[in-house]
Simulated assay, not measured.
Amino acid sequence: MAQMWRCSGLRWAAGGPELVWSGGRASALTWGKRVAFGVVEGGVRTCVGARGHACPGRAAVPGRSTGARCGECARLDRAHSVAADAVPDDPRPYHVYLAWFGPGMAKVGITAVERGSARLLEQGAVCFSWLGAGPLMAARRAEELLRAALRVPDRIPYAEKRAVRAVLPGTEAERAAEIEELHGRAVTLGGWPESLAREPFRAVDHVRAFGLEGAPRAVGEVSELVAGGVVSGELVAAAGPDLHLATGGRGVVVLDTRLMTGWELVPVGGGGAGGETSVPVRELKGGGGGGLQDGLF
């Protein structure tokens, strides 16, 4: 019987993206690598728990949930989140940043200084610039000020980020233009917290890190995994939690690795029986897929 694995998600390490498995083992992902796995026949997707603790009821969770948590574990996880202002006494310094995901799609956010650009890679930011650095609550106040003054959100749905990856401008200067203009407006605003040190505009571009330069256009996205289903393809790019997989005659399909969590997975062969992608795939918004249906192939 094949060994079963549980995926903990995608991690952006110094050398690039890695799939992390329960127990801490990681699989490095490189362009051209074949990603192939099956979902255990008759399996049920179960809650991944919260804050390092298993779900006491091993509750079943929907296949389309990217959080893979039951209601109680989701509340517990949120209760200890910086994003929810649940830890205002965090002593670490925080960066305020501007991130850009595609034309007309910029956001403001904060991340711990010690994390460097990891948060931006995890979000799939095509390019970004720091705005300032300081204590958590000062960074949070600056974030709220900038959201209102610049009229930019602090969250952008992943579906919208995927939709614009195929129409990104060709040069780094073009990709940085929107956040450069926003940065210029931001640093002239009044009301900045005194304890927040402003930082100059320096654009960091992730197109090469994501493998998007010259990558074939994605035409579909996996909507959920199902018991007995298979995902198989050659990795051509990755951004945020998304893997762009070339699946042969079906073109490039995007797999949000958050859909893998909570399932028991087994390895499958790269070709022949059992090696064909057989999970629900829908046309990618803006991808021009045309014939892909939201159902089993």
Rank of each mutant, 00 (worst) to 15 (best):
A2M: 01
A2N: 02
W5V: 11
W12C: 09
E18H: 15
S22H: 15
R25N: 11
W31D: 09
K33A: 06
R34P: 14
F37R: 03
F37S: 00
G38I: 04
V44Y: 00
V48S: 15
V48K: 15
V48F: 12
A50Y: 14
A54P: 12
S65M: 04
R69D: 11
G71K: 14
G71D: 13
E72W: 10
A79I: 07
S81H: 15
A86H: 10
V87Q: 07
V87S: 05
V87F: 01
P88C: 03
R92F: 02
R92K: 03
H95D: 12
V96G: 05
Y97P: 11
Y97H: 06
L98M: 04
W100H: 10
W100V: 03
F101L: 05
M105Q: 12
V108D: 01
G116V: 00
S117F: 02
A118N: 05
A118R: 04
C127G: 05
W130M: 13
A138M: 07
A139S: 08
E144M: 14
L145F: 04
A148D: 08
A148S: 14
A149E: 14
V152D: 06
P153G: 05
E160V: 01
V167D: 11
T171F: 03
E172N: 09
E172V: 13
A173F: 14
R175G: 13
A176R: 00
A177Q: 04
A177K: 07
E178R: 05
E180A: 13
E181N: 12
E181I: 15
L182R: 09
L189N: 01
G190Q: 03
G190F: 00
P193I: 13
A197L: 13
R198P: 04
P200S: 01
A203V: 08
V204I: 09
D205V: 06
V207M: 06
L212H: 04
E213G: 08
A218L: 03
V226K: 02
V231F: 14
V231H: 13
E234H: 11
L235S: 07
V236L: 12
V236K: 07
A239V: 13
A239H: 11
L245F: 04
T247H: 10
L255A: 02
D256M: 05
R258A: 12
L265S: 01
V266P: 02
P267R: 05
V268E: 12
G271T: 06
G271Y: 06
A273Q: 04
S278A: 15
V279K: 08
L284Y: 09
G287A: 08
G287E: 06
G289V: 07
G290A: 08
G291K: 08
L292R: 09
D294M: 01
D294K: 09
G295Y: 00
L296Y: 06
